[in-house]
Computed example of a mutant assay.
Amino acid sequence: MEIGVDRSLCEANAVCLGFAPDIFDLDDDEELVIRPGAVPDDQVERVSDAIKGCPKNALFITS
């Protein structure tokens, strides 16, 4: 599983960070940063919850 973000929708409100802090972060400009590469197996459920919980529906699975 890999994750993408629609930056035109993302408000960087960090809801996803609350679900999966090992995968999501905010940079110094308060832009969403997603850990590159495939999501580790032990984080898949958390990331799935983050995608479902995104208030702007900005997150999606790319593969």
Rank of each mutant, 00 (worst) to 15 (best):
M1V: 12
M1R: 06
I3D: 04
V5M: 03
D6L: 01
R7V: 08
S8H: 10
S8E: 10
S8V: 05
S8Y: 06
S8F: 12
L9C: 08
C10N: 03
E11W: 06
A12M: 04
N13Y: 12
A14I: 07
A14T: 09
V15P: 05
C16A: 10
L17A: 06
L17H: 09
G18Q: 09
A20Q: 02
P21T: 11
D22C: 05
I23W: 04
I23F: 03
F24I: 04
L26I: 04
L26R: 04
D27C: 12
D28G: 15
D28F: 07
D29M: 10
E30T: 14
E30Y: 08
E31P: 03
V33M: 09
V33D: 07
I34E: 09
I34Q: 07
G37N: 13
A38Q: 15
V39D: 09
D42R: 11
Q43D: 15
E45N: 13
E45K: 08
V47R: 01
D49P: 05
G53H: 03
C54G: 00
P55E: 02
P55T: 01
N57G: 08
N57P: 02
N57T: 02
N57H: 07
L59R: 00
L59D: 01
I61A: 15
I61Y: 12
T62I: 14
S63C: 10
